[in-house]
Write a protein that binds this DNA or RNA. Structure first.
Lengths: 362, 362
DNA sequence: CTGAAAGCGCTAACAT
DNA sequence: ATGTTAGCGCTTTCAG
């Protein structure tokens, strides 16, 4: 009646016990378990029966030791509480489970040493693959060695597929990113189309390719319109809402006229909104704001935040697909997939549009 | 110079190779690796040197097979995207890492079959422990067998510690919960103290102890004031913001006067706020709203949402401590820890209080 | 179609 | 203090 849960027993039952009970050899049991070879119907029955009777369950660690596979992949991200990652993690999890993989999640808190440590540990555990949103600061010298080591991670004599998430770390590694530059350019173009002239920019850390590319998009948009770039209008945050708040305060304190601000992510944008509002300005009448990523809080704040939508679900899916692709053939050449993002216009740039709270994804 | 990353190699190097290189026995290597026995300085040196030279790294899966320990715990939650869990997961992760444990996270999407499947798989993997926020519906008969099996989970001849998170599943299991009943009572008392008489309640699923207890707190508060309970004022949601929205719409459609609503969690409360506002009522002038959990979005919405604070960090910490406690002695009697919650008053009940956006935790 | 046996890499009891 | 050896539970040649 109840499922074959070894619910009470104390003695571990192994393949050996099953073999004995079924009166067959140990290898026969293994073969019916894995379908590795054809086993005659009668024996098959007996084995199944014995498995049932004994409540046998395979031991994955022994199997892993033999097979070299753990059926587990790891996802390493800077923060598991940052609102951006959970949807991504969920997507990865869903896709991985579908293919029989388990997922372990690690949060580095932006500490590169912990990132390295995790990767080291993961190798020892014979992890089947790593999806990495690295917190490495590529602006620091001597970083090349680490990046290089990532592309040649190997264990048990074979390479461990490693896929970069969100931010490409090097040309030799598979990666799935969004078209950060173009997305930001669209955002700034939108501001420009609204007639804004003094557009500030709060950047995500430019020590990462993501931050660099997004800022590049900002610059490109200005340049295209022949607007001179003013360093006074640019500042760099650290992703967090509070850093956005602080950056905006500083921008405001510089006494340069500002009628709009584009921001490297939604968290900082919301922090910036707070600073603007606290300083007594109106959004967007005095200063328009646009973020990046389209996380659910952006639909909740007042006024709702315009932003650039990033397809997190698709991103997780794609990353997992890249992992599968590389597991099948470790030698395929690295693939960089850039997902396209799209503008989401809300009230922080256009007061007249109807916007609604996102009541579904959290 | 560079860390001993086996960065390029192809041959797996085992303890055997180290032994040969150092010209010692395999067990000596093991002993210096684990400090299991005292090894003479010179040999120790030679072994360390060989490890260095060969870029040796322990193989955790082989070690696990032998030792029966994987140094990994699993956390199973209904949803990894729900805003409540990430802070909890982070806390668990932090504490676990400190003690040398890795954490695997699993989201069941509220599907009890997936929950069972995960647990089954985890047993095969010889997981060291499970922290479980179960999605089992205790109102369904035949559920006892499952709960019972949880308290006797065992593998490799020894029990697997299992700790219930957020919702106690049975007296035989360790659990860390919040004082749901009292917390809700305080919330409703607050509404009462504001002079509200027609207080509706949107419940979390009452098929779980958490939902039951919180509703009980609501009833207790009314009863204490001699206010008759009106079934028309009660309804049950499914945790999600959208369900809160729908529940509130239904409540409003019942044409019973309502001047306040207490809600089983913040997500539903925010959904309910949307419904109230959409229906043209003012918050809190016409209808006051209070939630539960104190997740960051509650500070962001307009008006900000009063709620009951739940210490997620402490919860993760406590759960992990319980795990450690039970690993050390599988036979200690089950411990139920109830964390106390506290009222957070914001503008959805008291317009005059100053509230600020939470800019720090997401 | 079935079984015997050799390890995967490691730990730990048991010699020496 | 050091070495020898027997497995942990499983997969997978290789024989029969």
């Amino acid at each position: 009646m109840t499922k074959g849960a070894n619910t009470s027993g104390t003695k571990p039952v192994s393949i050996k016990d099953v073999a004995k009970q079924a009166n067959v050899s140990i290898s026969t049991v293994s073969h019916v378990l894995n379908g590795t070879k054809t086993v005659s119907k009668p024996l098959q029955k007996r084995v199944m029966q014995a498995i049932e009777d004994l409540h046998y369950e395979v031991n994955m660690v022994a199997r892993s030791l033999k097979s070299g596979k753990t059926n587990t992949i790891a996802v390493i991200v800077p923060s598991i509480t940052s609102v951006f990652f959970p949807p991504l993690l969920k997507s990865i999890q869903t896709n991985a489970n579908k293919e029989g993989y388990n997922v372990s999640v690690f949060g580095t808190s932006g500490d590169i040493e912990r990132e390295k440590k995790y990767i080291q540990d993961l190798k020892s555990q014979w992890i089947d693959g790593i999806l990495l949103s690295s917190c490495i600061d590529t602006s620091i010298p001597d970083t090349a060695g680490y990046i290089d080591s990532l592309s040649t991670l190997n264990v048990n004599g074979h390479p461990i597929p490693l896929i970069c998430l969100e931010s490409s770390v090097g040309p030799k590694l598979d990666a799935v990113v969004v078209d950060d530059e173009n997305g930001t350019k669209c955002a700034v173009d939108h501001l420009l189309s609204l007639g804004r002239k003094q557009i500030a920019y709060i950047s995500a850390p430019t020590s990462f390719s993501m931050g660099k590319l997004r800022r590049k998009g900002y610059l490109a948009a200005l340049t295209e319109q022949g607007i001179p770039v003013d360093e006074k209008l640019m500042i760099e945050g650290d992703y967090s809402p509070f850093s956005g708040f602080q950056c905006m305060q500083q921008l405001l304190a510089r006494n340069v006229p500002i009628d709009a601000v584009a921001v490297g992510n939604d968290q900082m944008a919301i922090g910036a909104m707070r600073a603007i509002l606290d300083a007594g300005f109106r959004i967007p009448d005095d200063i328009a704001v646009i973020g990046y990523n389209d996380n659910f809080p952006s639909s909740l704040v007042e006024p709702s935040l315009s932003t650039v939508h990033v397809p997190k679900k698709e991103m997780g899916q794609t990353a997992f697909d890249l992992f599968i692709r590389r597991s099948k053939d470790p030698n395929v050449s690295p693939m960089h997939i850039s997902l396209s993002s799209s503008l989401v216009i809300r009230n922080s740039t256009v007061p007249s549009v109807q916007t609604a709270w996102d009541l579904h994804s959290w």
